[in-house]
Design a protein around this nucleic acid. Sequence first.
DNA 1: AATACACTTGCCACCCAGTGAAAAGCTAGC
DNA 2: GCTAGCTTTTCACTGGGTGGCAAGTGTATT
Lengths: 219, 219
Amino acid sequence: MSEQSTRTVERALSLLATVCEKGSTSLSDASRAVDLAPSTALRLLRTLEASGFVRREDEGRYRAGPRLMQLGAQALGHESLIDVCHDEMVGLEQATGESVYLSVEGHAASALYISIVEGSHSVRHSNWVGRTIPLAGSAAGLVLRGETPDSGYVIVERGIERDVTAVASPVTAAGRIVAVISILVPSYRMDEQSAQQCGVLLAAAARRLSSGLTDGTAL
Amino acid sequence: MSEQSTRTVERALSLLATVCEKGSTSLSDASRAVDLAPSTALRLLRTLEASGFVRREDEGRYRAGPRLMQLGAQALGHESLIDVCHDEMVGLEQATGESVYLSVEGHAASALYISIVEGSHSVRHSNWVGRTIPLAGSAAGLVLRGETPDSGYVIVERGIERDVTAVASPVTAAGRIVAVISILVPSYRMDEQSAQQCGVLLAAAARRLSSGLTDGTAL
DNA sequence: AATACACTTGCCACCCAGTGAAAAGCTAGC
DNA sequence: GCTAGCTTTTCACTGGGTGGCAAGTGTATT
């Protein structure tokens, strides 16, 4: 093996990922997506199925399985971050009416959205939970890289999406950045001044959360 | 192979599961838990780490990784059940003050809690999201097995936990049971009459959800 | 009906990838 | 310094994973 990593497991995990990302896949789709012989893909998918990581529907298509949901839910729950941050996020939503996200550093230079409090505007940014975005060019990415200015928040207009403005602040525990809270707003609704206001609110909420996490009050 | 299933992948998945379940594990703990040579466990965990399914902390301990959270969140989200059911669950919580759960059938004859709206009582049943319970002897289990009486709800006193009473109703889509909503209450607070009331409320909510899912309104 | 195409599945010989014992580092405690 | 326990590397062995092939099934096209 070239980089001391088990090929078989890598393949199985790739299959798991594609099945999840496509929502529902046939064997041949999956095998083509990861460039494997159908017979091999079948064997691996069966193994995943036997462990409950994927589930097979009546028509033979594969979907994400209950075991994956269980472990995912546990993992998200363990990061009790979601619970800890929930109230502050609700507060921000109420103050701004916009969608408030919580994200953490993901795999391979990405940010992963793990929680949302949806905004109350009818036109709003909705449901990116589970998605990843590149660190480069995103407000969350700047914050995760520790490039937050002294103001305590980052504003990015038209970063990942052309019509969205993002404001983000770091949540720290014992000095380390552990998460990002951010507000995503349709750009047309956001001018310089309201962005600053959002930033101030965000930074304040983030500071409260950070001190709670650092001294253990929140846990 | 005895049952046409790849041993290597099975082992890797077992490792992944134990890491998640223990929250944080050392290499030797994990290798002992799944009965593998440390060197083998190390290699597999590195593969999992390279794919982001586990993450290694500074001190060398393993935790659930971002990729797992991502896929888990996607899987849970795909089952947009959580979104669809959320409002009704909030309504039930407001009517009763108790914790309301949403669960689906899990792996190996179990029910998996995937969502909660926490009750407002200070003594309440809190946060079983991510846990599984056996179908046998639980209200959710009875419902998932299709053993709901004509009343439309099941009441189980002291099923899984000695001091908890559970009331559960089935959520169906196109005639098939796809989920269970349930209310879990500390038994001392629940008498026969209030349990019946809960049941009626639950059954009504479940019926509304089911019809919405069946005719596509909810999606 | 007959043909063609695509997908799923079982089979099995080949051989390389996965394995685990052993040994070497690495820390922490006595 | 010595011991105990954990992590990590190395390496020879071999059995588990692989994928080509063909049979079986399903669904468009002529």
